[in-house]
């Protein structure tokens, strides 16, 4: 699916993030375009998850701008909930609502936020579950699902809000190896459908295959970015080469 370079979905300029005295993000600037699949890689502690969490303001922004679809998240007056409705997020530990069954996990937000009637939301939820291959699990509780199934439900839950952008925070890191494939498959399908995606992952093979652009982060900076061919196969920076040597 083509990247639309005329439409910037997320504009990040001079983003800095501190946790008390610890500087996690030091000076990040980049643009993410409509339909683009951006994969962020880097050693742990490099700030990649924090960067991702700044894109829907799960982390307060210390300095700089993150503009999502024209809305500047640094602005105190914006309604962050409206932005989040359009930015889906998938977490490392799935974070399915334990107190609700799969169907209610999917319908909670659309119904509660009056995006759909109960029946509409139910139909749509079943459709999303079909998309991730879990229609028969609609009545199950999260505790009855495997890790891979939980993560696919989590993706379906985010999709039920019809987001423009999907953020993935190490979606396969907590999975047993044999379950990684099924989750990546769903993500590939989503990329093929033209979803704008930002993915933090350690799956270098997946990055090479699916990413339009790879960002390598280290120590709170973007060290190198470009096509998978450039960054993964022909890295120029010493730190990138060093990292890739360790993980490949």
């Amino acid at each position: 699916m083509a990247v639309n370079k005329n439409n910037v979905k997320i504009h990040v300029s001079h983003l800095k993030k501190n946790f008390d005295s610890l500087e996690v993000l030091k000076d990040i600037s980049t643009d993410i375009y409509e339909g683009e699949v951006v994969v962020i890689i880097g050693p742990s502690g490099s700030g990649k998850s924090t960067f991702l969490r700044c894109m829907n303001k799960l982390e307060e922004i210390t300095f700089g701008d993150v503009v999502v679809d024209g809305v500047n998240l640094s602005d105190k007056k914006i309604n962050i909930n409206q932005v989040r409705e359009r930015v889906g997020m998938v977490f490392q530990h799935f974070n399915l609502f334990h107190n609700l069954n799969v169907l209610r996990n999917l319908t909670l937000a659309p119904v509660d936020l009056k995006k759909a009637s109960k029946e509409e939301a139910r139909q749509q939820a079943l459709q999303m579950l079909r998309k991730v291959g879990l229609e028969e699990k609609a009545d199950a509780y999260p505790s009855q699902l495997s890790g891979g199934q939980k993560q696919r439900v989590a993706i379906a839950r985010a999709l039920c809000m019809h987001p423009d952008i999907m953020l993935f925070d190490e979606p396969t890191s907590a999975l047993d190896p044999e379950m990684v494939g099924e989750v990546l498959q769903v993500m590939k399908q989503l990329a093929a459908d033209g979803m704008t995606m930002v993915i933090v992952t350690h799956e270098i093979g997946f990055a090479r295959e699916v990413a339009d652009r790879v960002i390598f982060m280290d120590d709170g900076y973007i060290v190198e970015e470009g096509t998978p061919k450039d960054v993964i196969l022909n890295p120029k920076e010493a730190r990138t080469i060093d990292f890739l040597n360790k993980v490949l």
């Binding site: 799960l58 930015v87 889906g88 974070n95 609502f97 107190n99 909670l108 937000a109 509660d112 985010a158």
Partner: peptide, 27 residues
């Protein structure tokens, strides 16, 4: 209750109190 439950609810666009009442408090 795991902080991830609140974060997941907020990430869907639910306001704080809605997330508290629907997701966190029942658990």
């Amino acid at each position: 209750v795991d902080i991830g439950q609140m974060e997941a609810a907020r990430s869907l666009g639910l306001p704080y109190w809605r997330a508290m009442v629907r997701v966190v408090l029942p658990q």
